[in-house]
Design a protein around this nucleic acid. Sequence first.
DNA 1: GGTTGGGAAGGACATATGTCCCAGATGGAA
DNA 2: TTCCATCTGGGACATATGTCCTTCCCAACC
Lengths: 233, 233
Amino acid sequence: MKELHDPDLLEHYIQTYEIEPMLNKELLPYLTLYRYDHGELICSQGDPYENLFLLVKGKLKIFNTSPEGKTLILSFKTPLDVVGDIEYVKVTDFINTVEAVSEVHMIAIHHRWLKKFASDHTPFLKFLLKMITEKFYVKSSSLSFNLLYPVEVRFASYLLSVCFDESDALYSGKLSTSHLMDAANLIGTSYRHLNRVIQHLSSEGLVERHKGFIVVKNRDGLSKLANHRNIYE
Amino acid sequence: MKELHDPDLLEHYIQTYEIEPMLNKELLPYLTLYRYDHGELICSQGDPYENLFLLVKGKLKIFNTSPEGKTLILSFKTPLDVVGDIEYVKVTDFINTVEAVSEVHMIAIHHRWLKKFASDHTPFLKFLLKMITEKFYVKSSSLSFNLLYPVEVRFASYLLSVCFDESDALYSGKLSTSHLMDAANLIGTSYRHLNRVIQHLSSEGLVERHKGFIVVKNRDGLSKLANHRNIYE
DNA sequence: GGTTGGGAAGGACATATGTCCCAGATGGAA
DNA sequence: TTCCATCTGGGACATATGTCCTTCCCAACC
């Protein structure tokens, strides 16, 4: 983690994501820009709550480790998104662990200033409300989807979401095998079983295994299998 | 559904649940009190969004029917709770179906007046934010719990939540068999499998089957099995 | 009393998923 | 080159769960 003393870059992000209108003017001097490298942790479950973060560049992985030691990925995030919003409203320690998947830039706002300047600021409240409502909706759909459909269907949906995105390092229609473990943890299954499912999809001609990655061969077929639902966004 | 023209009762609920401080004063004349009987639907998935409801008496069941026709119960609600908050923020039709489990009283506020009087009202925004954040948190825990643990563990948690509550028609430590189908739909499993699990719990001496209901015999054992987590609140 | 209908429990079998472990590939270090 | 660590895929077996259908019980009705 490294603080970036670059007012121009900060200003650039503020413009790009229209952050200023939602914050109280007096808060602006207290914004800090941080950089995290691939693999770095932004926070761990149980850490005391100090900052609200706005993700403005890169990709985050939000996960959680159960008492039994199993890792469950709750979501991936891309700009613009918020980290620490739930903790801010509930006034609790960090609930999950947040890791940088790529190089990440985040704007941090210390809760001291939030409380002082933004706790009654209508645009800020509305912003939080929108973000959290959307998160709730996604989570709720996701819960239903998980309870209702087997891993095969969920993985089909996952593939469609992840492979056809302009985001980093993922060529269109391909999924690197090194991400399979992540996929399993996100879907909530074992690596072993995910492999089995891939084998099956492969035998149906929907995907193909190659050395180092998986290719989607039949996008429509996958979409049909996934009931046309893109849960993993 | 029946409108209750009872200003005193309405006032009573407003006092009891401290509803006034969170609403804009100008909104107060536009509150309507409705009564629903056991089994009545308050709204169905796809219905156009018209009212925000505040549950002030009774118990609600929120559920959803998948394209395949499977019913999944998302939650039960008791006062004070909100129905239509997500729809209000997202400006969409009703997402789920809401049914009265007992006699229910709800305060309705038409979205026309909400938009006019409350959309920038800080206490109201804060109230929504708190409610939705809590819902998100519960949903998120629930998702992890469902992905991580088998039906047996989830049912143990469910039993502990439901059976040791002062709420209607549920004697302490007992669960009526007629509610088993609901339980299965809430946990996201089949009635058949739930029976199997009950059989198993019974053979371990944790619960006992009687005609018409199930009794918890070993609360601590169940709690241990459920990892001390009360997901179903 | 006999009949019938519905609800509740469970048997039989298929499928989904988890766990443990092994084998082959790969790439860097000795 | 040889060896070792690691990554990746998959075999074997146990467990979890779904589906379909049968049996049993009891209440209501003729």
